[in-house]
């Protein structure tokens, strides 16, 4: 809310980094300039302006002494830290606690979040993954953004230039929450001292600034630094640590005049500081060229068989198709395939890996280019199609049974029956003769049957009728026999008699006497 309204909620500026691949990594310039302060006093100041042509690939924020330095509150000479990454130019970076050595602000080093200050509103400089240079104030969300994350980030104090205009007064408002407490901060801005700063120009080149000095005695105040940078066509710039921390190392050697004294104080000594802004040879993408090449000035020089730009893919990766594997030596074809890109089947008669095996298929059998297996034509079988189908079988792989009557042979290829002797079928003459005679008889019989009138009932029908009649007769006889037997049995069981007085039988007298007689009762 301390930001000028004209800028709305946008509290930082972005600029696409330049990518001058053919230019040298950097250009280091020394200046010795006459500076006139507000009181009209002239002073000579000296320092360095360094232009970086490909910031994304050649700028790194380094922890003191190397990775992990901030975690251990380490402090190290810029020269020493610079050697860990072979920095061509290195200068001191962010602020740190001079008592404990603790790194301050936000720090992202080569894509690794070293320190998150939770949205502290001090001037920041960062490079995003896509090469965007960012200057200004950032929220914590900005710092932790994963869509286009920061690969380098460092914190300073005071946004010196914004869009080519001096932005110090706005910075004082933004970076301090109570105006009555800005007294010390105003002094910090106004005092002359050794200073370092980082910015960018219109092309997106990164500009490193360093001026020698000693607080209150030599050097520049931040107004002078901002104006100096503005005159150098710098668009955005932030102030980094200064005073005795201001250090400039060129090709591994100290190239600035430190303001701190040594012990004893006869000499001047560079200060062991915290983070370092390092300009190194362009890094390749990926840095190790995927292990298949060398990084030469930011470009991977790939080993044979590996393709640029990252040496991650084999040159033949897309060309070997489905029938080959891409190797450093080109396509290695599957069995049965040949050619530069494994697009051709083995020529006829050859099979296997590299098509270096010879097919053994006989009788016109075709050869499988992968395994060399023979596919026999109809009528032949065997591993090499060397055998004719056995008698009684025909067709592909001799799996069909001949349907010929009376052992007549069939054609091994088509299965058609041969009723005449086939010499090449290797059948005995006797057997062929039998086949022929039987065949002729069968044909004659068929002709006779075809000419004779067809009976009303067949032989089988008559047989059934006769059987039924015979069974009926037998059943009738059996029934009568059983009935007769039952009658006989009944007569024996009824052995009682009754006597009836008969008047006369066969002409006897009326008074007659009772005489015995029999009457059969049924």
């Amino acid at each position: 809310d301390c930001q000028p309204v004209a800028h709305g909620t946008v509290t930082h500026e972005t600029q696409a980094a330049s990518k001058h691949s053919n230019s040298p990594v950097l250009e280091s310039n020394i200046f010795i300039s006459d500076i006139t302060d507000d009181s009209g006093t002239h002073r000579w100041v000296s320092g360095h302006i360094t232009e970086v042509h490909d910031p994304l690939r050649s700028v790194s924020v380094l922890e003191p002494g190397g990775p992990g330095g901030c975690a251990h509150n380490h402090r190290e000479l810029v020269e020493v830290t610079a050697k860990t990454r072979k920095c061509l130019v290195a200068q001191n970076g962010g602020y740190f606690d001079t008592h404990t050595g603790q790194c301050l602000g936000n720090i992202i080093s080569d894509g690794k979040l070293v320190r998150n200050s939770g949205g502290i509103q001090n001037a920041q400089f960062g490079i995003r993954k896509d090469g965007t240079l960012v200057f200004g104030y950032l929220s914590e969300d900005d710092i932790l953004d994963q869509e286009n994350p920061f690969v380098q980030l460092i914190s300073g104090v005071v946004w010196l230039l914004r869009k080519g205009e001096i932005y110090i007064n706005e910075s004082i408002q933004a970076e301090c929450d109570k105006t009555q407490e800005t007294g010390n901060f105003r002094h910090f801005v106004d005092v002359i001292s050794a200073r370092t700063a980082v910015g960018h120009d219109k092309e997106g080149k990164l500009i490193l600034f360093h001026v020698d000095g000693q607080t209150d005695v030599r050097g520049m105040n931040l107004w002078q630094v901002a104006k100096f940078l503005k005159d150098q066509n710098v668009m955005n710039a932030i102030n980094l640590d200064g005073g005795g921390s201001a250090t400039y190392v060129l090709n591994g050697s100290l190239a600035s005049y430190p303001s701190d004294h040594c012990n004893p104080s006869k000499w001047r000594c560079p200060r062991a500081i915290s983070t370092v802004l390092c300009i190194h040879e362009r890094l390749c993408q990926p840095e190790d060229c995927s292990g298949h090449g060398r990084c030469v000035e930011g470009q991977c020089v790939c080993q044979h068989g590996w393709s640029t730009p990252g040496c991650a893919n084999l040159t033949c990766q897309a060309e070997c198709g489905e029938h080959g594997i891409c190797t450093e030596n080109g396509c290695v074809c599957d069995a049965g395939w040949m050619g530069l890109y494994c697009s051709q089947v083995c020529t006829a008669g050859l099979y296997g890996d590299g098509c270096n095996q010879t097919c053994t298929c006989a009788n016109g059998g075709s050869c499988d280019p992968v395994h060399g297996r023979c596919t026999c034509p109809a009528g032949f079988h065997g591993d090499s199609c060397e055998q004719e189908c056995p008698i009684g079988f025909y067709g592909l792989n001799c799996k069909q049974l001949c349907q010929c009557q009376d052992m007549c042979p069939c054609d091994a290829a088509t299965g058609s029956c041969n009723t005449t002797y086939q010499g090449e079928r290797n059948i005995s003459l006797h057997r062929a003769g039998h086949c022929l005679a039987t065949q002729m008889w069968r044909e004659w019989r068929q002709e006779e049957e075809a000419q004779a009138p067809r009976p009303y009932l067949s032989e089988q029908s008559w047989l059934v009728v006769c059987s039924i009649l015979a069974t009926s007769l037998l059943a009738s006889l059996t029934g009568n026999l059983i009935q007769t037997c039952r009658k006989c049995k009944a007569r024996r069981q009824r052995a009682d008699y009754s006597y009836l007085p008969l008047g006369e039988i066969n002409g006897a007298t009326e008074r007659g006497e009772m005489k015995s007689g029999k009457v059969l009762f049924q």
Binding site: G118, I120, Y137, N184, Q214, T215, H261, C269, R271, A272
Partner: peptide, 30 residues
């Protein structure tokens, strides 16, 4: 290490120091 003459840190230029006034709080934005 004997060759390195350590700085005496006598030119401290810090934006917020307790010795020059009340402690200063930074602004945080989330």
């Amino acid at each position: 290490c004997k060759d390195i003459r350590h700085s005496s840190d006598d030119d401290l230029l810090l934006p917020y120091t307790k010795s020059h006034g009340p402690s200063h709080s930074h602004r945080y934005v989330r």
